[in-house]
Amino acid sequence: MLEIKDLHAGFDGNEIIKGISLTIKKGEIHAVMGPNGSGKSTMAKILSGHPSYEAMGGEILFDGENLLEMDAEQRSLAGIFMGFQYPVEVPGVNNAEFLRMAHNARRVKAGEEEIDPLDFDDLLSEKMKTLGMEKKYKERNLNDGFSGGEKKKNEILQMAILEPKLSILDETDSGLDIDALRVVSEGVNKLRNENNALILITHYQRLLDYIKPDYVHVLSDGKIVKSGDKSLALELESQGYDWVTTAN
């Protein structure tokens, strides 16, 4: 589904990612871990198509298409979802209305008719029920005045509505208390199936207690220094990042 080949990337001419290769197949969950400054965030930004970040070498193929030639809107329509670390607040724009716009953009792309507000409300209610989310997520404005946990839950609600092929969750666990972390993780687990894939970008392994990865990659100074299965994350937890970064 996703092939990253010898990717070099950064912003303002500073190279932060210095040659990463990674292949992700459908149905898989990959965790990308690493200390601060290792290039985790840059990797998330470059995959989502953030205009301030640029690829300096290598390529990324998504379902065989050159991802680096697509802008953020095209990437989303192609089936990539970015769960932001700090979702932006948009006062004045109703959350349900925003979700409907996003859902309709997909329908239009697929050549279907736009969904009307009432039918969309049914769809939204159903998804919210599955995720155990309160009614307020329909009524409030997009992330406006949301707590950190509420913003992350709202990201998962968007993911549920958009049904992406590949989701990248950037530090989704940061700033969440245990209860919120459980709700978010359960939501993500419910949305999983054999046709979609997930990249979890995280500093801590505690998220991985809830969402079990098939592979764990450790990033240091812009490179993957170690890959393994779930046990790698536990080892990191007990020994600290120095264990892999100095071993390198």
Binding site: G49, H50, F84, V88, V90, P91, G92, V93
Partner: peptide, 30 residues
């Protein structure tokens, strides 16, 4: 005082919503 920020527009775009529709939504919301 607020600005239509690039971050807001990027957020819309990363959900597959065009820049034009994003600006319209933010302005009419305002």
């Amino acid at each position: 005082t607020s600005k239509i920020s690039e971050d807001q527009l990027f957020y819309f775009e990363s959900r597959g919503i065009s820049r034009e529709n994003a600006i319209e939504a933010v302005i009419s919301g305002f």
